[in-house]
Amino acid sequence: MKKLFITLLVVIAGCSVAMAQSRGGLRINEVMVVNDSSVVDDYGERHAWIELYNSTFGPLEISSVYLTTDSLQPKMYPVPLGDVNTKIPKRQHVIFWADGQPDKGTFHTNLHLVPGQDNWIGIYDANGKTLIDEVLVPASLLPNTSYARCDDGIQNEENPAAAWEVRDGSPEKYITPSSNNVIRDTNSRVDLFHDLDKSGVALTIMAMSIVFSALLTLCICFWIISRIGNMVLRRNKMKSQNISPAEVAIKDQPEHDSGEVIAAIAMALRDHLEAHDTEQTVLTINKIKKAYSPWSSKIYNMREIPGRK
């Protein structure tokens, strides 16, 4: 029963690790339905395109996920295996062409985006059942405009459409195939601290509070643990020696347990009374220096002789 329980735990842990490695961080990031003046493919041709974004902070291998424009056919376009370019670096993008010509290469799909009507696009995981991300591109999207996330990979759980906007290529609403939707030249958090906390007092107060609370929590926790430990120790002593709580309290005084005191008493006995046990050794507190390495130790490197226990 115990073995079965442990096996079950290992299986659950394995499953959770497998889940943690899924492609949940893959996002549809920008879509263009009618492309007359935007980016061209390797053949110099323009087609509708779908930009995918790896929103995680590690590389993401997307081969065998499915792209589709029909929720009833989730396995419409499987991203082929064996192409090194399907591994998206952290926080980077790839473009898939919705040109209906999958024979042109990995990034050319059999998908079609239809101008003038709503286009639903979904990504399914390798099992063809788990929907990773989806977007409904509105029918009102004009030619050469894109439907893009306001900020790369950022979702709005309550109102998914609110995370998206139409981009017309103007300086404020630039179209960014294979690039970040928001181009940042500085760290906004640093700028915020620079603007709002010039003296650094706010950061100091916040940070010191966090440092203190972290160590205070640890301090309280160990105070409680030591109390519980002492209680258990006393109870065990009372049981084993059959003594009263008052006697246990006397025996538990720190002087009785202190190694320094014991060492001092032992040294005093040795020096003044010559009282020691049969061993003719001298008590020392010098550090023993040994040129030792576990790599050269026979104890650790020799295989133990098997024996019946």
Binding site: M208, F212, L215, L216, C219, F222, W223, S226
Partner: peptide, 14 residues
Amino acid sequence: IANPKLMLIGAAAQ
């Protein structure tokens, strides 16, 4: 561990 309140000194020095 024996004297957890000493942890606060480490915090103060920060």
